[in-house]
Write a protein that binds this DNA or RNA. Structure first.
Lengths: 148, 148
DNA sequence: ATTATAATTGAAAATGATTATCAATATCTA
DNA sequence: TAGATATTGATAATCATTTTCAATTATAAT
Protein backbone atom coordinates (compact mmCIF):
# COMPACT_ATOMS: atom_id res chain seq x y z
CA UNK A 1 0.00 0.00 0.00
CA UNK A 2 1.68 3.14 -1.19
CA UNK A 3 2.24 5.95 1.24
CA UNK A 4 1.27 4.02 4.34
CA UNK A 5 4.24 5.05 6.44
CA UNK A 6 4.08 8.63 5.22
CA UNK A 7 0.43 8.70 6.18
CA UNK A 8 1.14 7.26 9.62
CA UNK A 9 3.87 9.81 10.16
CA UNK A 10 1.64 12.62 9.06
CA UNK A 11 -0.98 11.41 11.55
CA UNK A 12 1.46 11.22 14.43
CA UNK A 13 2.82 14.67 13.66
CA UNK A 14 -0.68 15.99 14.11
CA UNK A 15 -1.52 14.08 17.30
CA UNK A 16 -3.92 11.81 15.47
CA UNK A 17 -4.14 8.09 15.95
CA UNK A 18 -3.61 5.58 13.20
CA UNK A 19 -6.85 3.60 13.18
CA UNK A 20 -8.42 0.87 11.05
CA UNK A 21 -11.17 3.04 9.53
CA UNK A 22 -8.62 5.69 8.57
CA UNK A 23 -6.23 3.19 7.04
CA UNK A 24 -9.02 1.54 5.07
CA UNK A 25 -10.38 4.85 3.74
CA UNK A 26 -6.93 5.98 2.66
CA UNK A 27 -6.31 2.63 1.00
CA UNK A 28 -9.55 2.87 -0.95
CA UNK A 29 -8.77 6.39 -2.10
CA UNK A 30 -5.28 5.31 -3.14
CA UNK A 31 -6.71 2.54 -5.35
CA UNK A 32 -8.79 4.87 -7.52
CA UNK A 33 -8.41 8.07 -9.48
CA UNK A 34 -12.14 8.75 -9.15
CA UNK A 35 -13.41 11.57 -6.95
CA UNK A 36 -15.65 9.84 -4.42
CA UNK A 37 -18.48 11.10 -2.23
CA UNK A 38 -18.72 10.04 1.42
CA UNK A 39 -21.52 7.68 0.47
CA UNK A 40 -19.52 6.19 -2.41
CA UNK A 41 -16.80 5.35 0.12
CA UNK A 42 -19.31 4.04 2.66
CA UNK A 43 -20.88 1.79 0.01
CA UNK A 44 -17.58 0.53 -1.34
CA UNK A 45 -16.28 -0.40 2.11
CA UNK A 46 -19.52 -1.93 3.37
CA UNK A 47 -18.95 -5.50 2.24
CA UNK A 48 -15.52 -5.77 3.81
CA UNK A 49 -16.07 -3.36 6.71
CA UNK A 50 -19.78 -3.17 7.56
CA UNK A 51 -19.06 -1.70 10.97
CA UNK A 52 -17.55 1.54 9.68
CA UNK A 53 -20.19 4.25 10.16
CA UNK A 54 -21.06 7.00 7.72
CA UNK A 55 -20.32 9.53 10.45
CA UNK A 56 -16.80 8.14 10.67
CA UNK A 57 -16.39 8.52 6.91
CA UNK A 58 -17.43 12.19 7.09
CA UNK A 59 -15.13 12.91 10.02
CA UNK A 60 -12.20 11.08 8.49
CA UNK A 61 -12.53 12.87 5.14
CA UNK A 62 -12.61 16.20 6.91
CA UNK A 63 -9.49 15.22 8.84
CA UNK A 64 -7.65 14.05 5.71
CA UNK A 65 -8.59 17.31 4.02
CA UNK A 66 -7.33 19.29 7.02
CA UNK A 67 -4.08 17.30 6.91
CA UNK A 68 -3.71 18.14 3.23
CA UNK A 69 -3.92 14.51 2.11
CA UNK A 70 -7.01 14.78 -0.09
CA UNK A 71 -8.62 17.18 -2.54
CA UNK A 72 -12.15 18.19 -1.69
CA UNK A 73 -14.30 19.26 -4.62
CA UNK A 74 -17.82 20.66 -4.46
CA UNK A 75 -19.24 19.63 -7.84
CA UNK A 76 -22.30 21.84 -7.38
CA UNK A 77 -24.85 19.10 -6.66
CA UNK A 78 -24.80 19.61 -2.91
CA UNK A 79 -22.26 16.87 -2.20
CA UNK A 80 -18.53 16.99 -1.69
CA UNK A 81 -16.19 14.65 -3.53
CA UNK A 82 -12.75 13.55 -2.42
CA UNK A 83 -9.62 12.29 -4.10
CA UNK A 84 -6.20 11.47 -2.74
CA UNK A 85 -3.56 14.09 -3.39
CA UNK A 86 -0.71 12.65 -5.42
CA UNK A 87 1.71 15.52 -5.41
CA UNK A 88 4.56 13.13 -4.78
CA UNK A 89 4.92 13.10 -8.57
CA UNK A 90 4.25 16.80 -8.90
CA UNK A 91 0.83 15.74 -10.03
CA UNK A 92 -1.31 18.81 -10.44
CA UNK A 93 -4.54 18.70 -12.37
CA UNK A 94 -7.80 20.49 -12.96
CA UNK A 95 -11.34 19.24 -13.43
CA UNK A 96 -14.12 18.57 -15.87
CA UNK A 97 -17.37 18.40 -13.91
CA UNK A 98 -20.56 16.89 -15.26
CA UNK A 99 -23.53 19.04 -14.26
CA UNK A 100 -25.90 16.11 -14.62
CA UNK A 101 -24.33 13.20 -12.76
CA UNK A 102 -21.63 15.04 -10.81
CA UNK A 103 -18.80 12.92 -12.21
CA UNK A 104 -15.40 14.60 -12.07
CA UNK A 105 -12.81 13.95 -14.76
CA UNK A 106 -9.23 15.02 -14.15
CA UNK A 107 -7.16 16.59 -16.89
CA UNK A 108 -3.50 17.56 -17.05
CA UNK A 109 -3.34 19.05 -20.52
CA UNK A 110 -2.45 22.71 -20.35
CA UNK A 111 -1.87 22.50 -16.61
CA UNK A 112 1.60 23.96 -16.99
CA UNK A 113 0.25 26.96 -18.89
CA UNK A 114 -2.60 27.30 -16.46
CA UNK A 115 -0.25 27.21 -13.49
CA UNK A 116 1.90 29.92 -15.03
CA UNK A 117 -1.09 32.20 -15.44
CA UNK A 118 -2.39 31.21 -12.00
CA UNK A 119 0.90 32.16 -10.37
CA UNK A 120 0.97 35.55 -12.02
CA UNK A 121 -2.69 36.21 -11.26
CA UNK A 122 -2.41 35.06 -7.68
CA UNK A 123 0.32 37.48 -6.75
CA UNK A 124 -1.45 40.46 -8.25
CA UNK A 125 -4.85 39.60 -6.76
CA UNK A 126 -3.47 38.87 -3.31
CA UNK A 127 -2.03 42.35 -3.26
CA UNK A 128 -4.92 44.19 -4.87
CA UNK A 129 -7.66 42.63 -2.75
CA UNK A 130 -5.66 42.00 0.43
CA UNK A 131 -6.51 38.32 0.11
CA UNK A 132 -4.45 35.52 1.62
CA UNK A 133 -4.68 32.98 -1.19
CA UNK A 134 -4.18 29.32 -0.29
CA UNK A 135 -5.53 27.38 -3.27
CA UNK A 136 -7.21 27.65 -6.64
CA UNK A 137 -9.71 25.83 -8.80
CA UNK A 138 -9.96 25.67 -12.55
CA UNK A 139 -12.87 23.65 -13.78
CA UNK A 140 -15.00 23.19 -16.86
CA UNK A 141 -18.68 22.35 -16.49
CA UNK A 142 -20.76 20.44 -18.99
CA UNK A 143 -22.01 16.98 -19.80
CA UNK A 144 -19.80 13.93 -19.70
CA UNK A 145 -19.66 11.20 -22.33
CA UNK A 146 -22.41 9.21 -20.64
CA UNK A 147 -24.82 12.08 -20.01
CA UNK A 148 -24.69 14.01 -23.27
CA UNK B 1 -34.73 49.61 -12.95
CA UNK B 2 -32.25 48.35 -15.47
CA UNK B 3 -33.14 45.34 -17.54
CA UNK B 4 -36.75 45.17 -16.52
CA UNK B 5 -38.18 44.82 -20.00
CA UNK B 6 -35.46 42.44 -21.08
CA UNK B 7 -36.23 40.32 -18.04
CA UNK B 8 -39.96 40.36 -18.75
CA UNK B 9 -39.33 39.36 -22.34
CA UNK B 10 -37.02 36.59 -21.29
CA UNK B 11 -39.73 35.32 -18.95
CA UNK B 12 -42.44 35.39 -21.60
CA UNK B 13 -40.20 33.58 -24.06
CA UNK B 14 -39.94 30.77 -21.56
CA UNK B 15 -43.66 30.60 -20.64
CA UNK B 16 -42.98 32.07 -17.23
CA UNK B 17 -45.09 34.72 -15.61
CA UNK B 18 -43.82 38.08 -14.51
CA UNK B 19 -44.66 38.18 -10.79
CA UNK B 20 -43.97 40.50 -7.86
CA UNK B 21 -41.59 38.15 -6.00
CA UNK B 22 -39.58 37.62 -9.17
CA UNK B 23 -39.39 41.31 -9.99
CA UNK B 24 -38.33 42.15 -6.46
CA UNK B 25 -35.62 39.47 -6.34
CA UNK B 26 -34.21 40.58 -9.68
CA UNK B 27 -34.26 44.20 -8.53
CA UNK B 28 -32.36 43.34 -5.37
CA UNK B 29 -29.75 41.38 -7.30
CA UNK B 30 -29.38 44.26 -9.76
CA UNK B 31 -28.63 46.67 -6.93
CA UNK B 32 -25.61 44.81 -5.60
CA UNK B 33 -22.43 43.26 -6.90
CA UNK B 34 -22.34 40.87 -3.93
CA UNK B 35 -23.01 37.17 -4.39
CA UNK B 36 -25.99 36.48 -2.14
CA UNK B 37 -27.34 33.31 -0.57
CA UNK B 38 -31.06 32.52 -0.61
CA UNK B 39 -31.22 33.50 3.04
CA UNK B 40 -29.36 36.78 2.41
CA UNK B 41 -32.05 37.64 -0.13
CA UNK B 42 -34.88 36.51 2.15
CA UNK B 43 -33.51 38.64 4.98
CA UNK B 44 -32.91 41.69 2.81
CA UNK B 45 -36.44 41.62 1.39
CA UNK B 46 -38.19 40.82 4.66
CA UNK B 47 -38.80 44.37 5.84
CA UNK B 48 -40.39 45.50 2.59
CA UNK B 49 -41.88 42.15 1.51
CA UNK B 50 -42.46 39.98 4.59
CA UNK B 51 -44.87 37.74 2.68
CA UNK B 52 -42.27 36.39 0.26
CA UNK B 53 -41.47 32.87 1.39
CA UNK B 54 -38.01 31.30 1.53
CA UNK B 55 -39.34 28.52 -0.70
CA UNK B 56 -40.21 31.13 -3.31
CA UNK B 57 -36.69 32.56 -3.10
CA UNK B 58 -35.17 29.10 -3.73
CA UNK B 59 -37.49 28.36 -6.63
CA UNK B 60 -36.99 31.76 -8.20
CA UNK B 61 -33.19 31.59 -7.99
CA UNK B 62 -33.26 28.19 -9.64
CA UNK B 63 -35.49 29.58 -12.40
CA UNK B 64 -33.26 32.61 -12.93
CA UNK B 65 -30.27 30.29 -13.14
CA UNK B 66 -32.07 28.08 -15.64
CA UNK B 67 -32.92 31.19 -17.67
CA UNK B 68 -29.27 32.21 -17.67
CA UNK B 69 -29.92 35.45 -15.76
CA UNK B 70 -27.77 34.71 -12.71
CA UNK B 71 -24.47 33.11 -11.81
CA UNK B 72 -24.70 30.33 -9.25
CA UNK B 73 -21.56 29.74 -7.21
CA UNK B 74 -21.00 26.99 -4.66
CA UNK B 75 -18.44 28.51 -2.33
CA UNK B 76 -17.84 25.17 -0.64
CA UNK B 77 -19.62 25.88 2.64
CA UNK B 78 -22.74 23.98 1.65
CA UNK B 79 -24.66 27.00 0.40
CA UNK B 80 -25.12 28.39 -3.08
CA UNK B 81 -24.61 32.06 -3.84
CA UNK B 82 -26.16 34.04 -6.64
CA UNK B 83 -25.27 37.17 -8.59
CA UNK B 84 -26.93 38.80 -11.56
CA UNK B 85 -25.20 38.21 -14.87
CA UNK B 86 -24.10 41.48 -16.45
CA UNK B 87 -22.86 40.32 -19.79
CA UNK B 88 -24.59 43.22 -21.46
CA UNK B 89 -21.24 44.96 -21.08
CA UNK B 90 -19.25 41.89 -21.94
CA UNK B 91 -18.66 41.66 -18.24
CA UNK B 92 -16.88 38.42 -17.50
CA UNK B 93 -15.14 37.85 -14.21
CA UNK B 94 -13.74 35.19 -11.95
CA UNK B 95 -13.80 34.75 -8.19
CA UNK B 96 -11.87 35.01 -4.97
CA UNK B 97 -13.63 32.86 -2.38
CA UNK B 98 -13.05 33.17 1.35
CA UNK B 99 -12.88 29.70 2.90
CA UNK B 100 -13.85 31.07 6.29
CA UNK B 101 -16.86 33.31 5.75
CA UNK B 102 -17.81 32.28 2.22
CA UNK B 103 -17.60 35.81 0.83
CA UNK B 104 -17.04 35.98 -2.90
CA UNK B 105 -15.00 38.78 -4.42
CA UNK B 106 -15.13 39.32 -8.17
CA UNK B 107 -12.04 40.19 -10.16
CA UNK B 108 -11.50 41.16 -13.77
CA UNK B 109 -7.75 41.50 -13.84
CA UNK B 110 -6.25 38.98 -16.24
CA UNK B 111 -9.69 37.86 -17.37
CA UNK B 112 -8.77 38.45 -21.00
CA UNK B 113 -5.69 36.27 -20.68
CA UNK B 114 -7.63 33.68 -18.74
CA UNK B 115 -10.37 33.58 -21.36
CA UNK B 116 -7.81 33.06 -24.11
CA UNK B 117 -6.36 30.09 -22.31
CA UNK B 118 -9.83 28.83 -21.40
CA UNK B 119 -10.92 28.92 -25.02
CA UNK B 120 -7.91 26.97 -26.18
CA UNK B 121 -8.20 24.48 -23.34
CA UNK B 122 -11.91 24.01 -23.80
CA UNK B 123 -11.68 22.96 -27.42
CA UNK B 124 -8.95 20.43 -26.76
CA UNK B 125 -10.59 18.94 -23.67
CA UNK B 126 -14.02 18.71 -25.26
CA UNK B 127 -12.52 16.62 -28.00
CA UNK B 128 -10.19 14.50 -25.89
CA UNK B 129 -12.71 13.60 -23.20
CA UNK B 130 -15.87 13.70 -25.31
CA UNK B 131 -17.24 16.33 -22.96
CA UNK B 132 -19.91 18.84 -23.92
CA UNK B 133 -18.57 21.90 -22.14
CA UNK B 134 -21.05 24.65 -21.24
CA UNK B 135 -19.25 26.79 -18.66
CA UNK B 136 -16.11 27.19 -16.65
CA UNK B 137 -14.95 28.37 -13.24
CA UNK B 138 -11.69 29.96 -12.25
CA UNK B 139 -11.45 30.73 -8.57
CA UNK B 140 -8.88 31.40 -5.90
CA UNK B 141 -9.49 30.22 -2.36
CA UNK B 142 -8.12 31.81 0.76
CA UNK B 143 -8.93 34.30 3.46
CA UNK B 144 -10.47 37.69 2.75
CA UNK B 145 -9.38 40.97 4.26
CA UNK B 146 -11.76 40.58 7.18
CA UNK B 147 -10.93 36.97 8.04
CA UNK B 148 -7.17 36.86 7.75
C1' DA C 1 1.46 -8.28 29.29
C1' DT C 2 -1.23 -4.98 31.69
C1' DT C 3 -3.24 -0.64 32.72
C1' DA C 4 -4.65 3.99 32.22
C1' DT C 5 -5.59 7.74 29.39
C1' DA C 6 -7.48 9.91 25.81
C1' DA C 7 -8.56 9.76 21.04
C1' DT C 8 -11.87 7.67 18.15
C1' DT C 9 -15.90 5.35 16.87
C1' DG C 10 -20.86 4.44 15.75
C1' DA C 11 -25.68 5.08 16.41
C1' DA C 12 -29.07 8.27 17.03
C1' DA C 13 -30.49 12.82 17.05
C1' DA C 14 -30.05 17.23 15.30
C1' DT C 15 -29.09 20.89 12.00
C1' DG C 16 -29.38 23.43 7.87
C1' DA C 17 -29.91 23.77 2.83
C1' DT C 18 -33.03 22.64 -0.33
C1' DT C 19 -37.16 20.39 -2.47
C1' DA C 20 -42.02 18.38 -2.63
C1' DT C 21 -46.89 18.83 -1.66
C1' DC C 22 -51.20 21.14 -2.02
C1' DA C 23 -54.66 24.61 -1.27
C1' DA C 24 -54.99 29.40 -2.14
C1' DT C 25 -53.70 33.26 -4.95
C1' DA C 26 -52.08 35.97 -8.86
C1' DT C 27 -51.21 36.60 -13.71
C1' DC C 28 -52.62 36.99 -18.22
C1' DT C 29 -55.26 35.79 -22.36
C1' DA C 30 -59.57 35.71 -24.69
C1' DT D 1 -64.87 39.95 -16.75
C1' DA D 2 -64.05 35.15 -16.56
C1' DG D 3 -61.43 31.17 -16.91
C1' DA D 4 -57.18 28.68 -17.27
C1' DT D 5 -53.02 27.90 -15.42
C1' DA D 6 -48.75 29.30 -13.45
C1' DT D 7 -47.15 30.67 -9.05
C1' DT D 8 -47.02 31.26 -4.23
C1' DG D 9 -46.40 30.23 0.78
C1' DA D 10 -46.73 27.24 4.61
C1' DT D 11 -45.67 22.90 5.97
C1' DA D 12 -43.59 18.59 5.60
C1' DA D 13 -40.07 15.99 3.73
C1' DT D 14 -35.49 14.88 1.94
C1' DC D 15 -30.69 14.69 2.06
C1' DA D 16 -25.91 15.98 3.24
C1' DT D 17 -23.54 16.80 7.05
C1' DT D 18 -22.60 17.62 12.04
C1' DT D 19 -23.32 17.00 17.08
C1' DT D 20 -23.90 14.26 21.16
C1' DC D 21 -22.56 10.70 24.17
C1' DA D 22 -21.63 6.07 25.69
C1' DA D 23 -18.70 2.45 24.21
C1' DT D 24 -14.49 1.03 22.08
C1' DT D 25 -9.80 1.23 20.49
C1' DA D 26 -4.99 2.88 20.09
C1' DT D 27 -0.96 3.67 22.33
C1' DA D 28 2.28 5.09 25.87
C1' DA D 29 3.99 3.94 30.26
C1' DT D 30 5.14 0.49 33.45
Amino acid sequence: MPGRYQWQNRFRENVCRWTVPREVILALLSRTTEHLTAKDIYGSLYSMYPGIGLTTIYRTLELLHRLGLVHKVAAGDGQSRYALKREDKGDHHHHLICTKCGKIVDYRDFVQEELELVKKTEEALAKKHNFAITDHNIEFLGLCEKCR
